[in-house]
Structures are given as C-alpha cells and as structure tokens.
C-alpha cells in the first residue's frame, strides 16, 4: 500500500493506493469534517484495498478536512459542508486524471460518490453505495448512540463505547484501529476543524442545514432522473445507525430510473461491513465491477 500526496485546488490531499492496471476503483470513507468522535480516513479501507488491488488499481482518498488532507482554505465556507466535500472529491478525480472510475462510498462517503455520479457521470464507470444513511431516505440513528456516550469525544474510552454499538462484533475494531483514529484526531489541523465546527460553529450554522437541503434535493432528483451508471447497494443486515430498512428504501428510490441497480445484504455486521465482513463485501463488489459490461 502506497501513500501519496497531491495538490487539489490548493489543498494538500492524501490518498492510498494498492495494485496497478485496470479501471481504477476509488473508495470514499464516511464521517464528518470537524467531528470529534471519529477519525475516519482512507485507512479505514486498508483490508479492502489489498483485496481490490489484486486485479486493478485501488485508491482510497482522505476527504477534505479529514484524515491527513488539509482543512478548507480561509474564507471557503462551503468547504466545511457536504457540498464542499463533493467539490473537493470531484477536483481530486480530475487532478488524478485516471477516469472514469469505479466509485465506492461508505456512509457519508456514499453521499459523495452518489452526488458525483449525478453531477459528473463522465468521471464514473460504476457506483457502489455502502450503509449510507446520508443517501438513503429516512432518519439516521447515530445521535441515539452518541448521546449516550459518557466519555469525552475523541478519547479511546469514547471510541470503545461507540464501537460496542456500531459493530456486530466490537472486538474487530480493537486491534490497532483505535490508535490509527486517535493519531488522526491528535493533529493540530483536526483540532482546528473541531473548534471551527463545534459548539456555536459551522456544524449547526452551515453543515447541517446545507445537508438537509442537499438531501431533499437529491431525493427529488432521484425520483425523476436516473443515476447514469450501474449501481450496487451494499448493506450490513445489522447496521444500527443506517438500518436495513433504509437500504431497502434506497433501492426502491434508485430502481425507478436505473434498471441495473442491485442490492447485496450481508448478515452479522454492524455499520462497517467492509471491515466486519471483508470477504463477502469484496466478493459482491468484485462481481459488480467485473460484471459492469455484462449484457444479459
């Protein structure tokens, strides 16, 4: 696995790659810029990158203000919203210049790749959406878990508490993965982002209202317009924050105008299917990528 940095519209952007050749597949992680409770990043896909890299170039990028990618530039308020995250991702794909790409997005990253497919289908070969209560219609349930967390955000204790709810088998996460996230959260730029988004900050003023409006817009678009590429929806049966019923609803929504959408559900996994059940996750994904050009 290789770590690379490139400049994307003035932001130092970090991505991981494994494998070479073929039509590249790009993985987009979840989480929210300036969220003190999780350090989501390209590292989340370490296991999957190795599997996917066996027969093609597999890429995972740190979204704007997350992982080791820079925070938005001074004066760029939109950079702190999901719209800004999509804009940065599209700019990253263009800068890389290897399109069209197979896009795979998890959770909030599922929104990024879905929006990219709507706005810039020319950059997209296929779309995969995993456990995303940001894209699926209905109510997310993350808050119900976070509100019960008695530990200060960003501590190991808080992460262990969350993992107990987010994972079907919490022991999966205990092996070194907390440390990766804690190291990310220790960076000064992440602390600055948390400060910017935190109490009285951009999260309540800009991020959440913007996301609300953009989701409504997305649902209306999908009611009337196709996602112009084949879609796979991958969902963990026991996801506590993006319940399986939301996945079924998303399938129904996309199915209206995209005949080539299918859904694959895997049992005994919480929110991070690609970490808890990497083998069936990758099997279903690989069938989708390899079958991208199938006729009947």
């Amino acid at each position: 696995m290789q770590e690379t940095w490139i400049d994307v519209d003035g932001l130092r952007t970090r991505f991981l790659t494994a494998g070479t050749g073929g039509r590249p597949v790009v993985f987009v992680h979840g989480g929210t810029i300036g969220d003190a409770s999780a350090g989501s990043s390209a590292n989340d896909f370490a296991t999957i990158l190795k599997l996917a890299g066996a027969n093609r170039e597999a890429i995972a990028v740190d979204r704007i203000g997350q992982g080791y990618t820079d925070n938005p530039l001074e004066g760029d308020d939109e950079g702190w919203t999901m719209r800004g995250s999509v804009r940065h991702f599209i700019a990253f794909l263009e800068k890389l210049g290897k399109g069209p790409y197979h896009l795979v997005g998890h959770s909030r990253g599922g929104y990024v790749v879905t929006r990219t497919t709507l706005e810039r289908p020319d950059l997209v070969e296929s779309l995969t959406i995993g456990d995303s209560n940001t894209v699926a219609p209905g109510g997310a349930r993350n808050e119900a878990i976070h509100i019960r967390n008695p530990h200060p955000p960003g501590t190991r204790e808080a992460m262990e508490f969350s993992a107990k709810f987010y994972y079907f088998d919490p022991s999966i996460k205990s092996d070194g993965k907390f440390e990766t996230e804690l190291a990310i959260l220790q960076q000064p730029k992440i602390k600055a982002a948390i400060e910017r988004m935190g109490e009285g900050g951009l999260r309540a003023r800009l991020f959440l209202p913007g996301l609300l409006a953009d989701r409504e817009d997305l649902f209306m678009r999908l009611e009337h317009q196709p996602l112009a590429r084949r879609v796979l929806i991958l969902w963990a049966y026991n996801d506590p924050t993006a319940p399986i019923t939301m996945g079924y609803e998303l399938l129904r929504l996309i199915s209206r105008h995209q005949p080539r959408v299918s859904m694959h559900v895997v049992n005994q996994s919480g929110h991070s299917l690609y970490r808890e059940r990497p083998a069936p996750f990758f099997r279903a994904l690989n069938d989708h990528l390899e079958g991208c050009y199938d006729g009947n």
């Binding site: 005949p259 049992n267 005994q268 069936p280």
Partner: peptide
C-alpha cells in the same frame, strides 16, 4: 452467520 440477500432491479 453466512446469510446473504441479493436483490435485482427489473
């Protein structure tokens, strides 16, 4: 544990 579901549109 190894239960999966695949749904095809159209």
């Amino acid at each position: 544990r190894d239960t999966e579901l695949r749904i095809y549109n159209s």
